[in-house]
Amino acid sequence: MDLFVQTLVNGLLQSGLYALVASGLALAVGVVGIVNFAHGEYLMIGAFLAWAGSAFLGVDPLLSLPVIAVAVFAIGALTYRVSIRHVLLAPELNQMLLTFGLGILLQNLALMLLGGNTRTVTTPYQASSLQLGDLSVGGPKALAFGLAALLLGALYVVLYRTTLGRQMRAVAQNRRGAQLIGIDVDRVYLIAFGVSCALAAVAGVLVSVLLFASPTVGLVFALKAFAIIVMAGLGNLTGVLWASVLLGVSEALVQTYVPGGGGWSDAVFFLMIFGTLVLRSFRGAR
């Protein structure tokens, strides 16, 4: 029973990170209408920036986090300007392939410049843990979860309580209509895409502390984020939360209870993608 509770808690903590990556992706999909296959690469950039800050400047990743978020926001905005913007009206296939190419480009640039090795970040709190009765929770994990919760809360406040947020939601619902009532759609897109990338980068900073930084670290998180937004329904931000929990907890359960579960837990997201897509396509009209 204790093992079960511990498993649930572990899964829940993991889901905070997932929700952070996936809500960024959902923002790009929902507001800009672009499925960003390069989303994981902004996570990778965030992880490497955190590692660089720690290794070369001695700055703790959690301290460099705000700077990294702003920097990657700028990179995302630049990406929007030079590429995404040109395919907004193109067929979905072109948009998809463009971001896909972008992902390959970024990942391989990282490989070229930094090599394929994983880089770890050492922090004083790395080995710490919180003791709650019988439960033991890794310090960095709890910290990551707390930060993710905080940021997601902030994202909701921005979306539902500010003018910019209202504009974003208006554009998401009806681009033409938003344009007619005088919203600068291009600017909203740029900000939304930048924020989307910044959210991934923040997740990347946390990943650098929890795991490591490497050129390919983004891919698996991007895949899981895809699973989450597919489960949640494209562009549905609230759905992202429960879908993240579902994925995090299911993975933890597989890890604990399936023999050799470590190897299999990475396939859980796949079953969820398939389960959801198949269910949806069979429920839909012929």
């Binding site: 590429s83 040109h86 395919v87 193109a90 072109n94 392939l97 463009l98 896909f100 190419g101 972008l102 992902g103 390959i104 480009l105 970024l106 990942q107 391989n108 640039l109 990282a110 490989l111 070229m112 410049l113 090599g115 394929g116 050129p215």
Partner: peptide, 22 residues
């Protein structure tokens, strides 16, 4: 000339093809 990341060609070509050589 480079050990890792030579796939960069594919990323670049894919992006440029989509933007300029459909």
């Amino acid at each position: 000339s480079v050990k890792d990341g030579y796939l960069v060609v594919y990323g670049l070509v894919l992006m440029l093809s989509i933007l300029w050589l459909p």
